[in-house]
Computed example of a mutant assay.
Amino acid sequence: MPPSPRPAAPLPRRPAIAFPRPLAAALPRRLTRVLWSAGPALRGSWLIALLVVCAGAAGLAYGAGFGGARPLLLALAPVLPVAGVAFSYGPYADPMYEISAASPSCGLRLVLTRAAAVLGVSLPLLTGVSALLPGTPGLPGAAAWLLPGLALTLGALALGSYIGCRAAAGIVAAGWSSAVLLPVLAARSGGSGGAGAFPVRELAEQLGRYLSGGVTQGGWAAAAALCAGLVLLRRDRLEAA
């Protein structure tokens, strides 16, 4: 009796090829994480105040015919992102701060995400509204405040690693307001201009000193770079800010 044929050996299975997850499926999850991280920066009183400032400047310029609307907006613009960053990070701003502080994205990454959200909203909005307002002789361009605003925001973050974000934002905002407004008030009290009139020309000239010119803008860029370096060096202290 002939021997029965041996059963054929099973072919080895090829390892399953792991295809990369489609990009369309990964994007919603990443977008959700980014929006969750940036959430406190894009809601609350700061965003309402920003919209009120922009709407008020446009209403003063075109509704009341006030010629100082654009200088006032440019005087306020550099410190509005500072306030937005200060009120978007910390236990007083985020009801889920303890949970987020324990996550891998806490600290510097979370601060920079919310700072980027604040700057991403305030920079184009304030610049666009300022460009639509009537100009004033001696006043710098609508985008001249961008580097100063960035430098002040990074300066507030760097100082916030020592004393906390809210206190640092208050000091930076007070310093900028004093540097811009005190010379204008001193010139007004010295007798230049009519009594009781808003010092449009003096404010425009003072803003020109701080915002106009390549040397001035280069100084703001250098200050922004120095503050960014200090933020990186002090990144471990931002968790407690």
Rank of each mutant, 00 (worst) to 15 (best):
Ser100Ala: 14
Ile99Val: 13
Ala64Gln: 13
Ala69Glu: 06
Cys106Trp: 08
Pro81Trp: 09
Pro95Asp: 14
Ala117Arg: 02
Leu73Lys: 04
Asp94Cys: 08
Gly68Val: 11
Ala93Gly: 04
Pro124Ser: 10
Ala101Tyr: 02
Val85Asn: 00
Asp94Gly: 06
Gly67Asn: 08
Leu108Thr: 05
Leu60Thr: 10
Tyr89Val: 13
Gly63Trp: 07
Gly67Asp: 12
Val79Tyr: 06
Leu72Ala: 03
Ala116Asn: 04
Gly63Ser: 12
Ala86Asn: 03
Ala75Glu: 04
Glu98Arg: 14
Ser130Ala: 12
Leu80Asp: 06
Pro95Gln: 15
Val129Gln: 00
Gly59His: 08
Gly120Arg: 08
Ala75Lys: 01
Val111Gly: 02
Val118Pro: 00
Tyr89Met: 09
Leu126Arg: 03
Val129Ser: 01
Tyr97Phe: 14
Gly90Ala: 07
Pro104Val: 10
Ala142Asp: 00
Thr127Ile: 04
Leu112Val: 11
Val79Ile: 15
Ala86Ser: 07
Ile99Gln: 10
Arg70His: 02
Ser122Leu: 09
Glu98Ala: 15
Pro81His: 10
Thr136Gln: 08
Pro78Asn: 09
Gly138Leu: 02
Glu98Met: 09
Val82Leu: 09
Arg114Gln: 08
Ala115Gln: 07
Ser130Pro: 03
Leu132Tyr: 04
Ala117His: 06
Ser130Arg: 00
Pro134Met: 05
Ala115Lys: 02
Ser105Ala: 14
Pro81Lys: 08
Ala58Arg: 03
Ala86Arg: 02
Gly128Trp: 01
Thr127Asn: 07
Pro137Thr: 04
Leu112Met: 12
Pro95Glu: 14
Val85Ala: 05
Pro81Ala: 09
Gly65Thr: 12
Val85Lys: 05
Tyr62Trp: 15
Ala64Ile: 10
Leu80Cys: 10
Gly90Lys: 05
Ala58Asp: 02
Leu123Tyr: 01
Ser100Ile: 14
